[in-house]
Each structure stands twice: as structure tokens, then as C-alpha cells.
Design a protein around this nucleic acid. Structure first.
Lengths: 333, 333
DNA sequence: CAGCGCTTTGCTACCGGTTGCAATAGCGTT
DNA sequence: AACGCTATTGCAACCGGTAGCAAAGCGCTG
């Protein structure tokens, strides 16, 4: 072993007086090796500071234990708990996450190709605003790593999506709002991806449209960003007289809802919920603070991630899942 | 080429009628190769969907273009913009980030050893609460990947830290507070790591102690968490009569400041800044919203990350840097 | 003490690239 | 036509492991 570079299996083998294959076996759980030579190897390995080179191992085994996580939405604070839960769960399985930032310089396709070149075992799209057709394209290499979608529905048949059950959750929210006496609802939507259109908004409208007569007003923020929410609500309130306004605003997620509360309260002096009730979605911890006190719906993040991991490990066939969360009734409704 | 697995350089070579080394050259910028055979190779590669296997390349070149990012503080929303800027900058240099979650199950040492086994080119500690002695230990392998600290100072001589200049920034903040007429300051501290002790708190105290006579009261939150901030401020306000209270609270970062504002305002009915002024640190975008309207100090994140990247690329000798940011005066003072 | 079966060990080949050198080709000279 | 020079290409060896098989070791039986 040269001093400059790190010890290899061959170095340890020499020191322990065995062949390098025996060294490999000492580090392979369940391999056929005599207890005494195992100990001898581990002892020498510790002495030399040897730890198997995972790159070399991955090259030989064709599995890296690396998962690419694609995120395009760093303005949404809810991404943080998602990343926390996801990385922790992956690490518990000896895997690691490569965090890839999707933005105008680096689109989904580039990211997937790049991750593919790095031989990741899977790619997880974390609630990103992808255009479904972009992932349906032939541009994707045939042998690309398996794709999964987390915290968003997918309309692409062959891509499993694990998310919070939009039908059940929106039913709970709708029932709550109805009971509270709200009758003039509005919906604030985020990115205009196809997959979203089929989700929360649809279930919301399906319930209210018959009760309202008219179509439910939609406020399009265009992204999951507080400022975008502020902007679109500002425009709405400026152009709508108090008498004609909605009495409750369902926001596609908490980031939008927080932006909406800020604007309603500080720019228009509206009281929440008396003048305008607001509902979010995600169960972001920030929304629970007294300043916002936002009624929201908690996504079952641990369960969602656990299910996804089981699919990665092959313990569960890849499939789309819709898991139930929990309605969090707070002061904003 | 078998259909099941992806094309290799040898497959492309066969198709193009050259040797596999020529294929490698076609993908190596600046390699010695005839233009016509280069085109021929690229054409066949496109046809077969060949892209070089970065794992194999890394094994041979001993550089992975992977950087491990260690984060222990997912409760702090400011981590999100940090991750955003960092990943984008890395990706612009063809590198990628492995996000590693430090928690009670996975400490710094394990993370560094794990990253080392994956042969990352560097490890970046993103403002994590490490105990300096933990990284000074002999436990670290001699040939570990180079360590860097971002957005936190380091007292470890051989580990470069790129951060916001605490001396300059605190001087600006202190001057501002003095001019506004505050005379009874308090300081809320986060994790009790050594490195922090030398930073913001010290510069704050050095200024105020002489003016106050008594030592500056310290409220120890113990972590960068809104709830921890709420708890420690609650305890302080409960046990301190209005006459004896501080008139301005300097918080070690924005997450703490937001927790403090919430508690002061909603639990004790204090007006901010009339009854208690509050200052944060980081320049988190959330703190700018009307609800908080927090005076803070913006870290020069893009510059910090740019400098760090230059060190990674060897364009700049590894060194600790303290860069100036910008005081953001808002309504909380 | 040969024969048998099971555990343990060593070996060849391979994963998919890169490195550095040697061989070859192409072209202009004399 | 032979020669020399340079641009290009091919090759053996290597990066640090793993898979799967063959050989060796060992204890026991008959």
C-alpha cells in the first residue's frame, strides 16, 4: 500500500496473508468465510483504514444504491420536510440521494439522462412541475432508471406516483367548509401541469359546481410560490367588489395559502376567516404558527415515503398509491 | 450489443468500425482524433443511445464530480435557498450533490466515512451543528475527501469555512440598533457549537457589554428551530417583569427570530417593535413578508457559493473567507 | 486409510471505462 | 521511390471490486 492513496482489498489481503477474494468475503454479509479468517481480515482492515470502494463495487454489481431526487420548487418551504423524510428513509436502507435542481438551465430530460449516466438505481420526481408529454417522449433512453413520482399524481400510465389521496382529502375539506357555512368558494391553483389538473382542483370543483350554479372562480398562481399567490389574489380583490367576492379560498398548497393570507390581511385589511376564509394543503409546519393558523390537510409523508422505498427495494410492485392524510382544522376557516 | 442492457463503448466501436479507445476519444474534449471518425462515432453513439458510464469513468480517473452536502437542520427554512443555490452552481460545473441527512441515527463521522466510500470529491458541511472536536479526531481517515464549511465559521484550522462576515455584519446591526435608541439588548443563540460562539454572539456582546454594564442576557434556544425559540422566549418573558425586560432581541438567525415574533406577539400581546424589537440573520425571504417584516442581514449566498466552487475546482486555494452581506432594515426595529 | 461431503479458499474473467506507449497511416520532401 | 515527420489509431495494463466455478482442506465414516 502506498501512503498517498487509500488501502485496497489487495493491500489488506497481503497484510492478512489471504487472497483478495477472502477480503471481499469478509465485507459481504452472509458470504462463506471461516470465522477466524474473517476476524483476521477485519482486524487488518481496521489497522489500514480500509473500507471497500463503493464505486468499484457498483461497477461490478450494477447497483449503486444511489437515487436521484429531482426538485424544481425551492420556493416552497414544504420541500424541506419532504427532503428530510426522504433522505432519512433512504439512508436507513444504505442508500443515498443525489439532489438535482431542475430549473431553466437544467430540464427534466437532462436531469434524467445525467442521473442515468451516473447509474442511479431510480429517479424520484418530488412534486415537480413536469409536462407529462416530456416524460412520455421517445427521448428517454430505453433502459433508463425507473421513475417514480412523489407527492403528485401522474397521468403517465407507466410511472408510479405515490401521493396523498386527493379524492378523500378534498371530500373532507369540502364537507368541513360546507358545515362551516361557506357557499362561495374559489380555488387557487399552482403550476398548470396536467397531472395537477386531475387532482385537487377537480375534486373541489366537482363538489361545489352543482351547489354554486356558476363555475368556481379559479385564481391561477402558476407556481407554488407565496409571491405568485399574493399577486393573483391582489388582482382578484382589486377587480372584484366586496359583495361579489368569494367567501373561502381553497389553495392548492400551503405556500399559496400563506401568500394569500398575507395579502388579504395586510394589503386589503380583510379579516381571516371572517371576511375571507383560507384553506391550504400539505400540513406544512409553518402554517400552524399563530400568525397563519391555517386550516390545512396533512400529507401522510412518512407513509408515502415508506411505500416508495418498499417499491425501490422490490418489496412492493411499482404502482400508484393514494394514501389518506389528516384534516387539520385551524383558525383560518 | 444485447438489447436488455445499455450500449457500451465497445458496442459503439463495433458499429462504427473503430476500436473502443477511439470511441472514448470521441467523448473526451481535446483528445487526439480525426474529425471524420469523431463524427462517425458520435453518429453511431446517438443511434445506439450510448452515453459513457460515469461510474466506470470515475473508477479510472479517480474523480467522481460528486460532492456530499451534509445538512442537520431541516427545521430551518433558510436551508432551502442554500440548497438551491448550491445545487445549481454545482450542476453548472457538471458536478452533482449527494444530500446527506445528519441526525441522531447518522452522525457527521458516519456521513463523512460513507461519503468517502462513495469517493466523493469533497464534503460540504452546510451550517451544521458539528462539534469541532468530532472532526478533529483521528477517527477521520487520513485520505478523507476535503472538507468545507458553508455558512458557518470553523475553529478548525485546516478546514476552510466560507461564511458571512460576522464582524462586519454585527457592527452594522449594532450601529443600527444604537441609532434607533435601543439600550437593553438580549441575544438568542442557537446550537451551542464552539464555532458559533466565536461568531455573531461574540461580536454582539463585545459591542453592548461596555454600554450595558451588566452582561447581555442570553436566551439559549439550543437549535435553529422556531419552536425552540418560542419556548425560550416564553420562559424569559414569564420570569421577567416588563420593567426589567430587554428592549431588543438579536436572534442568531431568522428562524429563531420568527419564532420569537410569534411568541411575543401572540402569546404575550407585545407589539413589535414598540414593546420588543427583534432582529434576525440570514435574509430568509420568508422574514420579509408583512406578517414578520423582520430586520435581518442578508448573507451573500451567491458569492459564498461561487467562492466555494472555485476552491473545489482548484481555482482558488482552500481558505476561510468572510464575505460582506447586506443589512435589511424593516419594521421589526 | 480410502472415500465422501461440506466448508473454505483461490482463480479466471469481467464490470466499462482511461492511460501512456507503440504501431500505423498519411502527407510532403528530396 | 525512399525518407521523415506528425496526426491518428490500436493495444496491454489498470482502476478496485464481484461472480461463479474449481480446487483444496477438513472431519467423519466404513
Amino acid at each position: 500500500m502506498s501512503k498517498s492513496s487509500r488501502a485496497t482489498a489487495a493491500d489488506v489481503a497481503r497484510a492478512a496473508g489471504v487472497s483478495k477474494w477472502t477480503v471481499t468475503r469478509a465485507f459481504t454479509p452472509g458470504a462463506s468465510i471461516a470465522e477466524h479468517s474473517r476476524e483476521r481480515v477485519l482486524q487488518e482492515a481496521a489497522k489500514l483504514g480500509y473500507r471497500p470502494n463503493l464505486l468499484a463495487r457498483s461497477l461490478a454489481t450494477k447497483t449503486t444504491n444511489l437515487v436521484a431526487i429531482l426538485v424544481d420548487d425551492f420556493a416552497n418551504p414544504y420541500k424541506l420536510p419532504v427532503l428530510e423524510v426522504l433522505t432519512q428513509a433512504l439512508q436507513a436502507e444504505q442508500m443515498a440521494a443525489v439532489l438535482i435542481n431542475i430549473n431553466q438551465h437544467f430540464d427534466h430530460l437532462s436531469a434524467i439522462l445525467d442521473a442515468d449516466q451516473r447509474q442511479v438505481d431510480a429517479v424520484i420526481l418530488v412534486g415537480t412541475d413536469f409536462k407529462d408529454e416530456a416524460l412520455n417522449e421517445q427521448a428517454l433512453p430505453a433502459s433508463r432508471p425507473p421513475l417514480y413520482v412523489l407527492a403528485r399524481e401522474s397521468t403517465i400510465a407507466h410511472i408510479p406516483a405515490v401521493s396523498c389521496d386527493a379524492r378523500v382529502s378534498m371530500a373532507e375539506i369540502n364537507q368541513h367548509l360546507w358545515q362551516r357555512g361557506y357557499r362561495r368558494p374559489g380555488f387557487m391553483s399552482g403550476p398548470r401541469s396536467l397531472s395537477t389538473a386531475l387532482g385537487r382542483k377537480q375534486h373541489f370543483n366537482t363538489f361545489w359546481q352543482p351547489h354554486c350554479g356558476a363555475p368556481v372562480p379559479e385564481l391561477r398562481a402558476g407556481s407554488y410560490d407565496r409571491n405568485a399567490a399574493a399577486q393573483v389574489l391582489r388582482a382578484y380583490l382589486q377587480h372584484t367588489s366586496a359583495a361579489e367576492r368569494i367567501d373561502v379560498l381553497m389553495c392548492e398548497n400551503d405556500a399559496l395559502a400563506i401568500g394569500a393570507i398575507e395579502t388579504a390581511r395586510h394589503e386589503f385589511g380583510l379579516r381571516v376567516p371572517q371576511d375571507l376564509a383560507i384553506v391550504g394543503y400539505d400540513g406544512d409546519e409553518l402554517a400552524a404558527t399563530p400568525s397563519f393558523n391555517l386550516t390545512s390537510y396533512r400529507q401522510p409523508l412518512p407513509q408515502m415515503v415508506a411505500a416508495l422505498i418498499r417499491m425501490l427495494k422490490g418489496e412492493l410492485p411499482p404502482q400508484s398509491l393514494n394514501l389518506p392524510g389528516e384534516l387539520l382544522i385551524r383558525g383560518s376557516t
